[in-house]
Design a protein around this nucleic acid. Structure first.
Lengths: 190, 190
DNA sequence: CAACGTCTATCTACCAGTTGGTCGGTTGGC
DNA sequence: GCCAACCGACCAACTGGTAGATAGACGTTG
């Protein structure tokens, strides 16, 4: 019995992503993923040669999905300020989804144990976030192009930090409070 | 051959702390710690009954040490603004020490896998940071007591986030840039 | 003072569970 | 008949943890 080629692969990728957002790269494990997908562990090797490869694929898919979400936000918004205002939504959604966090934060913590291909894809997530923020900060005329990237990095780190803090208390309201505080302080546009 | 009672216990605690700041609670492992201390793994059970107990002791010691460091900063500083300015130093030191990070950030990520006693001690670290920041924000007349705690939490999360980001690139200069950006934006007092 | 028991810190040897990964075989669609 | 997708059985490495023995420091007692 075999399903259409890509179905299992996609299902593995999706299950692994969910797991990685809750338990990190070290927490990823073939048996649990397989069980969730409804196949056996060795079958995963048919789609991914090693754990490192699976991890890299998960991280890559993660930032690709994020590009889509960010694009959706900028497209829907009437002006760049409005889009920037909605930025924290992405991080909020993870918390709302079983107290999970950004895969990139988790894996930045696990830095020492990460195979190189995984590291590269993890950095990709931060890169696309910073690029999006930087562009919008310029478009919204909040900062000039010379300062926007640095500020974008600061915003990304701060929002990710708030997400991590809220996870540690399993309290999403804390996340909202911190984002509001960033706005009040001037880090994020009000 | 046996050493004075507390020496090994302290050495285990110190080695475990270093390891936890690099590889988290899940990365803690009795054999490596024992090897670093110069004893065998089962000997650790003479000082700590379980891994959870060791983890909790490490986390507790961690925030106790932080209380000392924070107190030193406020004591040395001539005014509260000066003390606040030096706050990021603590996080910077971990990065300078082999790209390690705040144990509390790491364990907030590992939240799902943490035994309850460990969770409690980990939250203690954030608590003492927030309390210290909150007091100084009021003393420096930057904020009133009604807003200071919320802002303190935001600052803590932002600085921890910057630390995490910098670790993900193994680049301490990024940390400095982000802190500078927090100051420019108004999150931290300039 | 010597003999004794005791307590602490440590050891060696071992165990069961989990992990990433391998091997050889089966199944079913094209 | 071929090939992708899958399976059961297995393995070596590593994990937290246990059992039982040993070696030395120390106070007590004959």
């Amino acid at each position: 019995m075999c399903m259409a080629s890509s179905n299992s692969r996609e299902a593995v990728l999706a299950a692994a992503k969910r797991s990685a957002m809750a338990r990190g790269y070290n927490g990823l494990n073939f048996r649990d993923i397989a069980a969730e997908v409804g196949i056996k562990a060795p079958s995963i090797y048919h789609h991914f040669a090693t754990k490192a490869e699976l991890g890299a694929a998960v991280a890559r898919r993660y930032w690709e999905d994020t590009v889509t979400q960010l694009a959706a936000i900028s497209d829907e918004a009437h002006d760049p300020r409005m889009a920037l205002r909605r930025y924290p939504e992405i991080f909020r959604k993870s918390l709302a989804n079983d107290n999970r966090i950004c895969l990139s934060s988790f894996m930045a913590a696990e830095y020492d144990d990460l195979p190189d291909p995984v590291k590269i894809e993890v950095q990709g997530f931060a890169d696309v976030n910073v690029a999006w923020l930087s562009t919008l900060l310029v478009d919204a005329e909040i900062l000039g192009p010379d300062e926007s990237e640095i500020r974008a990095r600061a915003i990304y780190a701060a929002v990710a930090g708030a997400q991590l803090f809220a996870r540690g208390r399993a309290d999403i309201a804390l996340f909202d409070t911190m984002i509001a505080s960033y706005r009040a302080a001037g880090l994020l546009p009000a």
